[in-house]
């Protein structure tokens, strides 16, 4: 059976910058797997891709923005959310997605995460949680399960890990979910749902980092991590987020935890401003636009 007779085309390709693949990611890195679910979710929802922007911070996960054939912004470490906030406010027509790592979004960018959730800023945040600072070579993150080894916690971390689902829930996110890279189909569905929702949406994805997290902790290769996710995951949709903590070696609670209606920032702004807010249609373009006559 020859494949050439058929038009075989992976639709994900249309969403990738062809001149940028292959990616820099290591063999078995789960980040690429999450991108499949993301791409299918975007395509399935008939989102206007011309009006879709993706913003990342810095890290292996932060490289996602640069592989997507969208308006891509690769900003600074931890600051993807405030950049995305500005983008969305300046052009509310845009669908704005932040795609970044656990260290980026919850440590250095933790403050922005809290406040964007509190404001219910209309952006979707995808956090690839590989439980480590991968790009810099395997240092501990706020999400590194206690007692795990990392290059900066050679005797194990002396601090417990953060439950980001609980954090953003408490801060006011209107949609909170967690899956692992193993749950490709559920992740696609959740992303599709989140893409259509208005307000601050947060999706955490546990993802293998075979090069640092798995290796440092003798957890085998990427495949072993994926099989482990499959084994340890328990789907609990609607689970209160305080019951979703990730205990080292324990159950991985996954699912859609929070899905509630809350007025997003811009809607509220317009409602409160009422007649104080003037719509501002752009001035009709003048003929001459060759710079100012006076020297600047």
């Amino acid at each position: 059976m020859s494949t050439t007779e058929l038009h075989v085309h992976n639709p994900v390709e249309d969403l990738l910058r062809q001149d940028r693949v292959p990616t820099i990611w290591c063999p078995g890195c789960g980040i690429g797997t999450t991108v499949n679910s993301f791409a299918h979710a975007l395509l399935g929802q008939q989102i206007n891709l011309q009006k879709t922007a993706i913003v990342s911070g810095i890290g292996c996960s932060g490289r996602v923005s640069g592989y997507m054939n969208l308006d891509s912004f690769h900003t600074t470490h931890g600051r993807a959310i405030p950049f995305a906030t500005g983008l969305k406010l300046a052009n509310p027509e845009l669908t704005v997605i932040v795609y970044s790592g656990d260290g980026d979004l919850t440590s250095i960018g933790g403050n922005h995460l809290i406040h964007a959730a509190r404001r219910n800023m209309d952006i979707m945040v995808v956090c690839v949680n590989n439980m480590i600072y991968a790009m810099t070579g395997g240092q501990a993150a706020a999400t590194t399960p206690g007692a795990s080894n990392s290059t900066t916690t050679p005797y194990g971390a002396f601090e417990p890990e953060l439950n980001m689902a609980q954090l953003v829930d408490a801060a006011g996110a209107c949609f909170v979910a967690r899956w692992t890279a193993f749950h490709v189909m559920q992740l696609e569905r959740t992303m599709a749902k989140a893409l259509k929702k208005k307000g601050f949406r947060f999706i955490e994805i546990l993802s293998p980092c075979p090069t640092y997290y798995q290796r440092k902790n003798n957890m085998g290769d990427a495949l072993a991590a994926m099989v482990d996710y499959k084994k340890r995951s328990k789907i609990k949709n609607g689970c209160p987020t305080w019951e979703t903590a990730l205990e080292p070696g324990g159950e991985i609670v996954v699912g859609e935890f929070v899905d509630r209606e809350r007025e997003d920032y811009l809607t509220r702004m317009r409602r409160q401003l009422g007649s104080h807010y003037s719509e501002f249609p752009p001035q009709p373009e003048e003929q001459e636009s060759e710079g100012c006559e006076k020297e600047c």
Partner: peptide
Amino acid sequence: GMYCPDFAIFGYKYPDQKAQKGEQGQ
């Protein structure tokens, strides 16, 4: 294809077979 982190494999159906899109294995 959904699992492949490097966009290296893609599964497709032969035409005329209206097999439902399954979600096996999950």
